[in-house]
Design a protein around this nucleic acid. Sequence first.
DNA 1: GTTTTTCCTTAATAACACCTTAAGATTTTC
DNA 2: GAAAATCTTAAGGTGTTATTAAGGAAAAAC
Lengths: 234, 234
Amino acid sequence: MLLAANILIVDDEQAIADLVEVYLENENYKVFKFYNGKDALNCIENEKLDLAILDVMLPDADGFSICQQIREKHNFPVIMLTAREEEIDKITGLTLGADDYVTKPFRPLELIARVKAQLRRFTKYNSSEPFQEEHLIAFSSLVLDLDTHECTLNEKKLSLTPTEFSILWVLCSNRGRVVGSEELFHEVWGDKYFTNNNNTVMVHIRHLREKMHDSADNPKYIKTVWGVGYKIDK
Amino acid sequence: MLLAANILIVDDEQAIADLVEVYLENENYKVFKFYNGKDALNCIENEKLDLAILDVMLPDADGFSICQQIREKHNFPVIMLTAREEEIDKITGLTLGADDYVTKPFRPLELIARVKAQLRRFTKYNSSEPFQEEHLIAFSSLVLDLDTHECTLNEKKLSLTPTEFSILWVLCSNRGRVVGSEELFHEVWGDKYFTNNNNTVMVHIRHLREKMHDSADNPKYIKTVWGVGYKIDK
DNA sequence: GTTTTTCCTTAATAACACCTTAAGATTTTC
DNA sequence: GAAAATCTTAAGGTGTTATTAAGGAAAAAC
């Protein structure tokens, strides 16, 4: 049995931290979530972590000082969440020393991809036991590869747009379970928008089904659960 | 199994020292890191080192005096980290005796390249067991040599500029995976800038493709993954 | 130290892929 | 049959990438 990575997320914007927690748990990671630096530091001492996601600006400490303490006593990758680019001037220098940076607002899949890249880079050079990673979702003739962003159905390559890929990824990683359209929206679009634009999701589903030679009535892959959402069977 | 080299890094700017540590460890080197001269000197006496990276300006000693002590009792390469070029005049002379110099801010890849070059040069003439190095990427008619910065495609030499080489190196060492343009930017330009100047990357990609007789539509080598980044297939 | 050359960046524009919107059609539920 | 949810279609708008060319910076040559 392979290990699932332990990931720390620290952000005083609770909405963001909560959201990130959902994404990560969706990918089967064990998540340690905190809204301030003090609790986070405590966690760093007592838990065996594999990666940390830190907001740069915290009420009681900045992400940089936490990053330093991680570097001193431990050795695992750190990803910094930085504010949007206009505000970056104020924190120049603070982000030094992190392994990667993600600017808010971000798309969940982007963050997931970075997390996986860092974990892989780290384990590669530390030759510890590899984590349970799913860069690849494969079942019944459908293959999704997060590394190459390629999708294969019945050995034929489908060229999906980023949003389409993202939707299919979420549905697949939750296969066997109905994903509500609102949940789906947040998983794909992140905190970028707040209006759950249902129609947009539907149009993308339509495009997906078209590319998969699927149809709304009598669907083979993406099934509509009326009044609830969409699902892909196991 | 080949040996991994022991490398000393000394810099009172902890952020810099930490950063260098991360990059070196990613290359499988064993790192001894210190923020002051005193601890560093202690390390030099007690550890069997293979290379030292010294900041010129330290609170309790300058890199030069440390370098002197290394030269007196030991015999391994020394790389000096010097401040930005405007300030170099003030410390001219201090850097004498080192094997190489790197000015801050520096690109991570550049430092790694210098480290490898020095280790190579040194072991060559001391013919002990060679270090484990990866200075060459070779696959399907494309060869990249980090030491000489030479690139060969189909047995024909391409004359790449430093930036072009750097970009191609990053893409190749991540081949089979999409590298986001922001990630690419940070890998190549380092933490020097925070503005992800996407356009600059694109122009270099364009030049690269031109020299490789590649095109944006129907590309053979560098492929664009829309909304995500660039990749080179495995 | 000066000129020459090479290289990097910037900016402006064009071309393209993608996303969203909206409005009407269809299906499902009650 | 009415209401609500979903589906379909197409067009306009947005954002991303490609392409040039030109200015300036850095490096090399003299």
